[in-house]
Amino acid sequence: MPRKKVIKESKVETAPGLVRLALEMRAPWELGMALASWPFTRVAPRGDNHPVLVFPGLAAGDVTTLVIRRFLKDLGYPAHAWEQGLNFGPRPGVLEACMERITELRQEFGRPVSLVGWSLGGVYARELAKIMPGDVRQVITLGSPFAGSPRATNAWRVYQLVSGEREIDEERFASLRQRPSVPTTSIFSRTDGVVAWQCSVEEETDLSENIEVHASHVGMGANPSALYAIADRLAQPEGQWQRFDRQAHTGLKKLLYRDPARASWPNPFFGFY
């Protein structure tokens, strides 16, 4: 087991600034990189092909998770869409439908389901794992705002508009910080232009971890380093989960995955990076 490091948390109340937001224009490039590197997906770790359910981000639907699901299907996983239309927040019946979907997949394949959630979809994945831990194998989130203030995202106004929630329920948002009891991985980027990266940092324990990638928020679901990290996590034998050990990787892999617990240093464009 690798030695644990602590990522110092800070209370963040503000969303990423204009420079980070402008860097979201990287998303098409990240998609292009994913397509260009597709022949090399064969080198990604392969697991035992258990079922995976993928959740889209805010105001997004299953089309946006096509790259993730196709990538996982090419590795042999039965990867499934959430099939709930656009993600407009906790609408009546959506959570119940997701629970039914997890139960169906568990019964169909006879194995616990891994949940992969992008942005707000990751919040869904975490909450579902808390409700039905016996049916969930692990949770992997990408740029999900489960910590900090909801105001620390550039999508908060959009969330208010599409969900109809005008006021912040501080108690409910505070409960999102609680970790699921199943293995949990948070993939995040310090140059995320939508969600303040501190809001995606998990307390690291024997069953929880953080993996930092170089990615935009909008393009994270197609970013090759994020996709590889997902494959690496899913490939672990059931019941033998261990935290990601970047020290075990050399060369290009070690460059792709920087130590998420490293000290921040002042940067004239990004503040503390």
Results as ranks from 00 to 15, higher is better:
92 P>I: 15
111 R>C: 06
125 A>L: 00
44 A>R: 05
90 P>F: 09
66 L>P: 00
66 L>C: 09
111 R>W: 03
28 P>I: 08
104 E>C: 09
109 F>K: 01
44 A>D: 14
145 P>H: 14
82 W>E: 09
109 F>C: 02
144 S>Q: 10
78 P>Q: 14
61 G>Q: 04
138 Q>E: 15
59 A>P: 00
134 G>N: 04
148 G>F: 09
40 F>N: 13
149 S>D: 13
144 S>G: 12
60 A>R: 13
78 P>E: 08
147 A>S: 14
28 P>V: 10
57 G>M: 07
71 F>T: 07
90 P>L: 12
96 E>H: 02
119 S>L: 09
30 E>F: 11
26 R>V: 09
81 A>I: 05
68 I>S: 05
32 G>Q: 03
102 I>V: 07
55 F>N: 08
118 W>Q: 12
126 R>N: 05
48 D>G: 02
123 V>I: 15
131 I>G: 00
25 M>C: 14
106 R>V: 00
142 L>Y: 04
70 R>S: 12
20 R>S: 12
110 G>I: 12
69 R>E: 08
115 L>Y: 03
39 P>Q: 12
91 R>A: 15
109 F>D: 01
22 A>M: 13
48 D>H: 13
141 T>M: 05
108 E>Q: 15
39 P>L: 09
142 L>N: 13
117 G>H: 03
70 R>L: 13
34 A>E: 04
43 V>R: 07
89 G>V: 03
20 R>W: 01
78 P>F: 06
79 A>R: 14
67 V>P: 03
48 D>I: 05
77 Y>S: 11
118 W>I: 07
69 R>H: 03
30 E>H: 14
47 G>F: 00
93 G>A: 10
139 V>Q: 07
101 R>Y: 01
100 E>S: 12
53 L>N: 12
93 G>M: 08
88 F>C: 10
74 D>H: 08
84 Q>Y: 12
113 V>H: 04
53 L>H: 06
88 F>H: 15
111 R>D: 13
48 D>R: 15
62 D>N: 07
79 A>P: 06
34 A>N: 06
42 R>T: 05
89 G>W: 00
128 L>G: 01
39 P>Y: 02
29 W>I: 15
147 A>Y: 03
98 C>R: 03
109 F>P: 01
45 P>R: 15
51 P>H: 11
75 L>I: 07
143 G>S: 02
107 Q>P: 00
137 R>K: 10
103 T>E: 07
129 A>L: 04
31 L>P: 01
43 V>Q: 11
58 L>S: 08
126 R>E: 04
29 W>F: 10
67 V>I: 15
82 W>G: 12
142 L>E: 06
